[in-house]
Amino acid sequence: MNNTMTNKRNLIDAQKFALYAAMASISMMFAAFLSAYIVKQASGNWLEFSLPSTFYLSTVLVLLISAVLHKTKSFINTLESGLYKSGIVVALVLSILFIISQYTSWNTLVDRGVDLKGNVSGSFLYLITGIHVLDVIGGVVALIISAVYAFIFPIHTHPEKGQKFDLVVNYWHFVDVLWIVLFLFLMFYK
């Protein structure tokens, strides 16, 4: 993407804008899932079940990820290379913990008899949280790439890196907020 066209008169940062557009798309996708959920629920034959407690843990994890990344971003400006690298690694570990916490929640649900193929309410839960985990995996890949860059290139040699990393951080904030919305939705629209 190095040959991205630039024009000195750019009104907004093109890459950031493209990211926002992509977020709008992803949001529409989830809006569709949630509307389908509401419509289906209203038509009956709907199994109610309580959410596994590990979902609360997931929520704490996303809050931590966002906080850590927010702080890490500032280490670029202050050129604190060590803190910058460790910030990325901590976020990476937290995000993998998030995936594990989701997986654990699914297992708990299956043990309680709510499986993918049973009632549609269960299917929806796996669908929605599953697709969200795919988005998280996308974020993990982006973090791994950031980590590789951070460890190979000295922090001051790459003025653009800050911008790129900013995109990663923004994407993570989005995924995190998305999780919180989904979690609240699943909690209140049983």
Partner: peptide, 14 residues
């Protein structure tokens, strides 16, 4: 397109 095609994608996932 940006706002409507993702909804089709949701339908496809289901």
């Amino acid at each position: 397109g940006l706002l409507s095609f993702p909804v089709l994608a949701s339908g496809f996932f289901m």
